[in-house]
Design a protein around this nucleic acid. Structure first.
Lengths: 229, 229
DNA sequence: ACGGCTACTGCCAGAATCTGACAGTAGGCT
DNA sequence: AGCCTACTGTCAGATTCTGGCAGTAGCCGT
């Protein structure tokens, strides 16, 4: 196996183990000596891979995704750029910043003439959906990722307000509104909450008792065979 | 310079030259012998790069973008995936297919557990903006890329129809409608055309006399200091 | 404070790979 | 027919990679 292939394999190995791994273990998995492993790690770090080693513990790959070399067609890259621009205009600040960063990273590796074409690109996205949301959707996304409960004050369509504790598992992006999809403890059922009607949002540190993916599947089943509308 | 770096350089070289380049030229640019160049080309082709060589002509890189290894944070990859999903739901069939392909390519290189997370991802995009456009926006995008004229029948807000010949240079994606931005030969001015009011679209094979980017800049200047609205 | 585990570096000889040169085949272009 | 080019095989020398050894330093539990 060539060295460059092995370096990619090494990243995959590090991703498999979430906890710190000793260099010796990695060397065994790759079939190389410990000395060579140290050299490989140094090479990867030199190329910017966020690998951390601590004496007495082992190596960890800081969260992040290393994409290996990939081929995209013109239209595929156009699609990615257009999509990222759309996300960049969303009101969710953290996500929008992430989209802008991703765009910058992609632009940075394109040759000059193509970068210009992207900068002055011909696919434009309309103005941000001017939904004024008082809450930070980043909190919601984090709660979803970590399967944590959320508490907030909800003002429904009629104007009546109620305090809710919910188990969030999805976030929907519609034309004008963003919707938190969650299990509502009060109603004991799946409910959708428009982000612009949520106030006093607080993350609760307790994990909710079900798996996010299972809830998502169940919820999908209920909306895919609708009986009413 | 290490071999793997040189391979990336080789791709950049091929991208710079749009027309076929002889192997000898490339070898000179990279400072290697012609024999080694052949080996490098073979290696790249083995890794899937779309390089074509023809005897008597030279090498061409088929259009497409090879992205070198890139690091993205969790949120950046979430942003890219969400954006691509949005594009995948757009009515422009070719672009939407491209977005789906790009998503598949990204998913293919992620380790299993992360791929699952993406598949059952928690960021959803609402139903496609149900604008029924009778025309193929792919034709418009291609005309923009190649700086070619377009002819179509346009029905304006009042219902009056007129035959137009325009120089398209941008495509705007708004909440519900897509808008072609172009110089209108009839009005001798910049005009916006809603895609759902365009009929009998035909690409014309003649190039329009101005540069797309210059028109885009000029048009931007006119809308950034609006006097009316 | 101690020993065990680990990350990390410098060094060196053998192994593996890469490289350039030459010779030769085959295909496109004028 | 002649020129340019892509491509392959072979081989010796240059380059790089690799594994083992020795040594330094940091984290950990006892």
């Amino acid at each position: 196996m060539s060295r460059s292939e092995r370096l990619l394999d090494l990243i995959q190995c590090l991703r498999r183990h979430r906890r710190p791994v000793s260099g010796q273990t990695l060397a065994n998995e790759l079939g190389i000596s410990i000395r060579t492993l140290y050299r490989d790690i140094a090479t990867l770090q030199g190329q910017g891979a966020p690998i951390e080693g601590e004496a007495g513990l082992g190596y960890v790959l800081k969260p992040g995704f290393m994409l290996p070399p990939l081929m995209f067609s013109d239209e595929e890259i156009e699609a990615i750029v257009l999509g990222s621009r759309w996300v960049a205009k969303q009101p969710d600040r953290r996500l929008s910043a992430a989209a802008a960063n991703a765009l910058a990273k992609i632009a940075a590796v394109l040759p000059d003439d193509l970068r210009e074409e992207l900068d002055a690109s011909t696919l434009l996205v309309g103005p941000p959906a001017a939904a004024i949301e008082g809450i930070d959707l980043g909190v919601v996304r984090q709660a979803i990722r970590n399967e944590r409960k959320l508490a907030f004050l909800y003002r429904d369509a009629g104007g009546a307000a109620s305090q809710r504790i919910v188990w969030p598992f999805a976030l929907g992006f519609f034309d004008k509104v963003r919707v938190v999809v969650a299990w509502c403890e009060m109603r004991q059922d799946f409910r959708h909450f428009r982000a612009d009607r949520i106030a006093e949002l607080n993350a609760i540190d307790t994990r909710y008792p079900r798996r996010r993916q299972a809830m998502l599947r169940e919820w999908r089943a209920t909306i895919e065979k609708p009986r009413g509308s």
